[in-house]
Design a protein around this nucleic acid. Sequence first.
RNA 1: GUCCCCUUCGUCUAGAGGCCUAGGACAUUACCCUUUCACGGUAGUAACACGGGUUCGAAUCCCGUAGGGGACGCCA
Length: 473
Amino acid sequence: MAVIVRFAPSPTGFLHIGGARTALFNWLFARHHGGQFLLRIEDTDRARSTPESVKTILEGLTWLGLDWDGEAVSQFARRERHVAVAHELVARGAAYRCYASPAELEALRAEQTAKGLPQRYDGRWRDRPASEAPPSVAPVIRLKAPLTGETTLHDRVGGTITVPNSQLDDMVLLRADGTPTYMLAVVVDDHDMGITHVIRGDDHLTNAFRQLNLYTAMDWTPPMFAHLPLIHGPDGAKFSKRHGSPAVHDYAALGYLPEAMRNYLVRLGWAHGDDEIFSTDQAIAWFNLEGLGVSPARFDFAKLNHLNARYLAQTDDSRLATLAEPFLVKAWGRDLTDVDRTRFLRALPDLKTRSATLVALAESARFYGIAPTLATWEPKARDLMTPEARTRLGTLLTRLEALPEPWTASKVEALFRTSAEEQGLKLGVFAQPFRAALTGSTVSPPIFTVAEIFGKNEVFERVKASLSLPDLA
RNA sequence: GUCCCCUUCGUCUAGAGGCCUAGGACAUUACCCUUUCACGGUAGUAACACGGGUUCGAAUCCCGUAGGGGACGCCA
């Protein structure tokens, strides 16, 4: 039997990290089995669903590289079918009309809470004839769930879980306004769409039992279920769309690569032995439900950073340059010139092993585009510009002037090494002030390569400017 | 409150009764490399929540305790 899975977000906000991982697992599972990964927008809550949310969620999935099969399905568009099923259930005697008003139910819950009882619908209209219905109340339709016995779920993550039916009340299928609830719609749609495996967050676990009763009432075969442990925030607290989880597009803006994000996310609650860094193709080849963990995981930015750094360092320079450009523009506060682009591309091999994110990468490249000014020189770099250092740099400039063309890193370096040797000093004594002069900082990629990328003119300009830098007070 | 679930280094995890003096990764510490910072390399610190049982033998099975989480909506 072909595998068909779905990701079913509700369009009431953005795509958060937990949803992204759920989508990823479904996607990996489908691709592994050569099955289908469907997308269904659970928009039956008309008050909270927005088209903007749908757009944001789709963009988030696209950024993550999760392509879905066919068109995204709107659950709301299928409401006629849901209503028909609800009525069929009533006809079968498996559901009934309930005339209890919202206020009445609220009072019931308040009373139960006061008495320390579980909050549950008490079935007051379960066997009451419609002739007793108050004329002013529009009824809802509720499932007639079994009162006794128990319901067992064979979850692919949690194992066999049994709940007494006394814990499950008669859930609403159709609201008073005639619209279907999520509980009804999700079962009908999963059935109609031929979903074979429902892989979703653990917060749906208790729903599964109620939904199982609905499958039974319709004589439908339920799909396999796999409930994923939730993701917690770095502090161990709840981490969801409603509780502080960042949106996927935030990670994009923070300078994370989608492939790094995928790799990080797949390891959060799933493992393949000791494997840590692997391609998406490898993940597809390896992914299975058996590798899923059972306990919640905390989101750890340090590990994400590490992975992203590794992916950044591996990324092809020209692609990386394209990805980084918007971050450069932001960091530099101006559009790039052709010279900027050329320099950045040449600098990239040395730059990309030094940054964890595109934001940091752009920041580390700032000196290429913006010459240090009095205001931007780092204090430690200025400390390097002692009178002796300035004298040495001045001498170096003269010798640099005499260097035969072309201007290369190795020639500049050789000159520096010779100068240091002649005076019996370490290379750093010469190289550090040079670094400070070119970058305004004590930290940079290898400085002779930097000098080559700048070219002779720019090097001379910056060194000369550094020689006239006023002393620190 | 009721029901359900979870518990291995700080974090993510390996572990399906003997392969475990518990492995890997991130973080962290030290050293090496070195023109700075990274990268890389080497070494180190660090965990089976607790208590009972089953067994020749338990991180692995069972029971209990504690802690954490989830659900309990005419939300999804």
